[in-house]
């Protein structure tokens, strides 16, 4: 489904090139449940941004469903973004919208959508649909963020430290939700530095200095 071949992503720091992705090779299968782990600055988040289509690699190849993403037109790129849902550590909910509106926000930009109530029921957020993000706990916010991904038919969910700002119980709850979603056929890629969280995934990919080491 996703293949990175000798991917290089450079950043300029103090006029010197810093290789965030250093000739990285990676294959993510359909329906995978992968944790990408590594120390801070090893290139995890950059990798996530490249996969999500927010960043472009400077060298190498990125194939999505066997198609070269570098050669994608604007339309194809927006299709790629529409296939991939991203969940962040700080939830990224819009404060001025209710939970319901935050979830439906995604449907404003996409044609496909699922039943809101079904999704809400699945994530146990039915009773907070009319609340504002400021009235929610961290776990609830993250479930709303997941619901926002699910309301449109995403094939992959990328999660950048999804449990980073949650307590242990809530973190476990979120991981259970990810597992359920994976069982339903959605690929889950989690970036984390928490080994306990990573151990709940089917596969662990370790990164060091912009490369996959295992």
């Amino acid at each position: 489904m996703i293949k990175l071949d000798k991917a290089v992503k450079k950043y300029k720091v103090d006029n010197k090139d810093l290789l965030a992705l250093n000739y990285l090779d990676l294959i993510l299968e359909e329906n995978c449940f992968v944790a990408i782990v590594g120390v801070s600055g090893c290139g995890k988040s950059t990798l996530l941004n490249v996969i999500a289509g927010y960043d472009k690699i400077d060298y190498g190849y990125y194939y999505f469903n066997n198609k070269d993403v570098n050669k994608f037109s604007k339309k194809e790129k927006s299709k790629l973004i529409k296939n991939i849902g991203v969940i962040f550590q700080d939830f990224n909910l819009l404060e001025y919208l209710t939970v319901k509106e935050n979830i439906l926000l995604a449907t404003r930009y996409m044609n496909s959508k699922k039943d809101l109530l079904k999704v809400a029921k699945k994530l146990d957020i039915l009773d907070i649909l009319n609340k504002y993000p400021s009235q929610l706990s961290g776990g609830q916010k993250q479930r709303v963020a997941i619901a926002r991904c699910l309301i449109t038919n995403k094939k992959i969910i990328l999660a950048d430290e999804p449990t980073g700002s949650l307590d242990k119980d809530n973190a476990i709850k979120i991981m259970e939700i990810f597992k359920k979603l994976n069982d339903e056929g959605i690929a889950i890629v989690i970036v984390t530095h928490d080994e306990n969280i990573a151990s709940r995934c089917k596969k662990i990919i370790r990164m060091e200095n912009g490369r996959v080491v295992n």
């Binding site: 529409k82 991203v86 990224n92 819009l94 926000l105 930009y109």
Partner: peptide
């Protein structure tokens, strides 16, 4: 910018 970023992450195009 954050709001724009969130919307773009949700699939909003530049035109949107």
């Amino acid at each position: 910018m954050k709001e724009i970023g969130i919307k773009k992450a949700l699939g909003a195009s530049n035109e949107d």
